[in-house]
Amino acid sequence: MTVPADLRYSSSHEWLRLDGDIATVGITAHAQEALTDVVFVELPAPGSNVDAGDPTAVVESVKAASDIYAPVAGEVIDLNLEVETDPSLVNSDPYGNGWLFKLRVRNPAEVGELLDATAYRALIS
C-alpha cells in the first residue's frame, strides 16, 4: 500500500500536503481501497472555516457514504472540481488528481501533530 513519505496523515485516513501555509487534503490509498468504487464526492463551500476533525467533505461509494474530516483547522480556499465530475479519480490517483480540497492552515503547528508516513503505515498494517 502506497504511503508517500512527504505527506502527513490523520488516523481517519486523510492525507495532507503542506506548501507554505496551504494544505492540500485527500484520502489515502488505504481509504480508497476500503471504500472501493467512489461514485460521488461532495466538497465543502469555498471560504468556509473548519476546525480539525470537522466533517468537511463526503465521499460515497455504492456501498456507503463516508465523511472526510479536516486534518487541521483552516479556511477552504480551493476545491478539486474534477473529482465532482469524475469521482473515480479518488480511486485511481488518491495522492494526485484525486485530491479533494485545499486549506489555508490557521495554525501550522497542528500539522506537526499529524501522523508521519511511518506512523500511518503502522496504523494500517
Binding site: T36, D37, V39, S61, V62, K63
Partner: peptide
Amino acid sequence: PVQYTSILDE
C-alpha cells in the same frame, strides 16, 4: 459479505 471485490464489478 457486502462485496468480494467491488459492487460495480460484481
